[in-house]
């Protein structure tokens, strides 16, 4: 049943990663993404892979779910690899047959890019697997709060995100109901060509639109009644506090970045200029 969906892809658990402060997790993820692109040889690449595997292991998220997050990007990985293999020149030729010229640089770049993209997706999905959408929203709000100086309505944006998350299941449920109601009147949603199918959606989209507007108006009144002004002076029940484990993890991350830099310097770049 469509109604049972879980918003986002949070995986309930109590691992170290789950308990980390959401702000710290976002910061760490950003540092990791940057460091991914620092790797220049197989040693630093290996360290990156090791780090990714360790992260997955301590998160206790089942491997099956991790693979699920890689699946949608598989095509992109294959495609960029092929492009790299055939179009990057330099280094020693590996295959030189008629119009096909493959060089070592091409192969290495393809391998590097593929591994980088996979690690990037796996680690970012660790963030969303171990953090509830609510916590993420709060963390983003906190991290962006310095932008308030530049008159960016950070709190309002965060409130909008929360409301969007809150109403996704409600609207999914509503689509389900309207679809059934129109099907009961003989609406044919499954057959026909592209244009016919688009046309068949009108009886669903119009009522959905009408009811969403009605909901928005009622919600606005309800928020007014509960003294929401969108202005300053709002406090939060759940305070975010960095604790020891957050700083310890940050320290590990710094070590990791330092490791990558050292390995790069010591072994040099694998690509030939």
């Amino acid at each position: 049943m469509i109604k049972d969906i879980t918003i986002g892809q949070y995986f309930n658990g109590n691992s170290l990663l789950h308990r980390l402060d959401a702000r710290m997790k976002i910061i760490l993820t950003v540092i990791f993404i940057v460091s991914i692109f620092l790797c220049q040889n197989f040693w630093s690449l290996g360290l990156m892979l090791l780090f990714t595997l360790v992260t997955v292991t301590i998160s206790r998220v089942p491997l099956k779910m991790v693979f699920k997050s890689i699946k949608p990007i598989a095509i992109i990985v294959v495609f960029t690899s092929l492009l790299n293999i055939f179009y990057i020149k330099g280094g020693t030729p590996v295959v030189d047959w008629k119009f096909i010229h493959i060089t070592s640089n091409g192969l290495f770049t393809a391998l590097f890019m593929a591994l980088r993209i996979i690690c990037l997706v796996v680690v970012s999905s660790m963030l969303t697997y171990t953090t509830t959408p609510t916590m993420l929203t709060d963390a983003i709000e906190k991290l962006l709060s310095p932008l308030k100086v530049f008159k960016v309505p950070v709190s309002t944006l965060a409130m909008m995100m929360t409301l969007a998350l809150r109403f996704i299941p409600t609207l999914v449920d509503e689509i389900d109901r309207i679809t059934n109601a129109q099907k009961a009147r003989g609406a044919n949603l499954d057959d026909g060509n592209f244009m016919q199918r688009i046309k068949a959606l009108v009886p669903i989209i119009v009522p959905l639109f009408v009811s969403s507007i009605r909901r928005a108006i009622e919600l606005a009144d309800a928020m007014d009644c509960r003294c929401y002004t969108g202005g300053p002076g709002r406090t939060r029940m759940k305070q975010m506090k960095f604790c020891l484990r957050d700083f310890a993890t940050l320290f590990v991350m710094v070590l990791f970045v330092a490791g990558i830099v050292v390995l790069n310097m010591y072994f040099g770049a694998v690509l030939v200029k």
């Binding site: 109901r177 309207i178 059934n180 109601a181 129109q182 099907k183 009961a184 009147r185 003989g186 009108v202 009886p203 669903i204 119009v206 009522p207 009408v210 009811s211």
Partner: peptide, 20 residues
């Protein structure tokens, strides 16, 4: 199956929200 849709007319709760 399609015939059944028309032989058995089902009107859902709050049907006014299906007007379009």
């Amino acid at each position: 199956t399609r015939e059944a849709r028309f032989k058995v007319g089902l009107c859902f709760q709050y049907p006014e929200y299906q007007l379009f």
